[in-house]
């Protein structure tokens, strides 16, 4: 009835040696949706991100991008499709300024020389459309706060004009004000029609910003909830495994979705 989801994973399996990291995992992210991926430590969240980002391809299962099956085996293949990933450790160069970090590895140059003016213009334009406020784009990112660094990392991923953004724990170790900044930005991404897959440990953040919550437990799906109709307790019990009917609820949920 509607357009196919931006990204659909079906029956993803991933094994590291003796450890079954992912088993029969399904996931859908639609354009203009924020899907939170939650679960206990070792539930397979990061593994799933790596599968989508092409860092560590799945053993089995299909990945569909806008309705057609694709094989993502390397990071740049994911980037070419329009999937941007912001890892937890941000990967920023502290000594470079905001412009330098944004364009690192894809500098604009004229006749072999860096075109700082054009890069700064694009940076300011991008930060403006994302409603990001920074003291100056010419300060080394070391002098920015944790939240500002996170927004720099996210806006860097936006330079490639992605359709889907994967955020790995964007609010971990941030203060309240800074967390708010980052969550504002996530909402900006949604308003611009992007799909967002957000890993988070913080149930408050998830409830504040996500449309859907996908729960992983021990490498398996353990629920897919609509944020507006699901209580905090339901999600927590689904994460910890205190409910045994979570899977059936998820199944019924998918039924109504279609």
């Amino acid at each position: 009835m509607s357009a196919p989801p931006l990204l659909a994973l079906r029956g993803i399996f991933k094994r590291y040696g003796a450890v079954q990291a992912l088993a029969d995992v399904d996931l859908e992210v639609r354009a203009g949706q924020v899907v939170a991926l939650v679960g206990d430590n070792g539930a397979g969240k990061s593994t799933l991100i790596k599968v989508i980002a092409g860092v560590d391809p799945a053993d089995e299962g299909t990945v569909e991008w806008q309705g057609r099956p694709v094989h993502i085996t390397r990071p740049h293949e994911a980037q070419d499709l329009g999937i941007a990933t912001v890892y937890q450790d941000l990967a920023l160069c502290d000594n470079l300024d905001v412009v330098g970090n944004l364009f690192l590895g894809r500098e604009i140059h004229r006749a072999g020389l860096l075109d700082e003016v054009e890069m700064e213009r694009v940076t300011l334009g991008l930060l403006d459309t994302l409603a990001i406020r920074l003291p100056s784009v010419r300060l080394p990112v070391a002098s920015l706060s944790g939240g500002q660094r996170q927004t720099v990392a996210i806006s860097r991923s936006m330079l490639g004009e992605p359709r889907l953004v994967l955020l790995d724990e964007p609010t971990a170790s941030l203060g309240i004000e800074q967390t708010a900044q980052v969550l504002d930005l996530v909402e900006q991404l949604r308003e611009r029609g992007l799909g967002v897959l957000l890993i988070s440990h913080n149930m408050g953040d998830v409830k504040a910003v996500a449309d859907w919550i996908a729960v992983l437990r021990l490498g398996r799906n353990n629920g897919f909830f609509d944020v507006t109709t699901t209580s905090h307790e339901q999600i927590i019990s689904s994460i910890t495994g205190a409910t045994d009917n979570a899977v059936s609820r998820r199944a019924s949920h998918w039924e109504t979705e279609r």
């Binding site: 740049h76 450790d89 941000l90 990967a91 920023l92 160069c93 502290d94 000594n95 470079l96 330098g100 690192l104 590895g105 894809r106 500098e107 140059h109 072999g112 020389l113 860096l114």
Partner: peptide
């Protein structure tokens, strides 16, 4: 002023970040 120089600075800042940007 050159992309090459920028790479040197990037490596001095964070080798891992530089590697990830290709």
């Amino acid at each position: 002023r050159t992309p090459y120089g920028r790479m040197i600075f990037a490596l001095g800042g964070s080798v891992e970040a530089a590697r990830r940007t290709g």
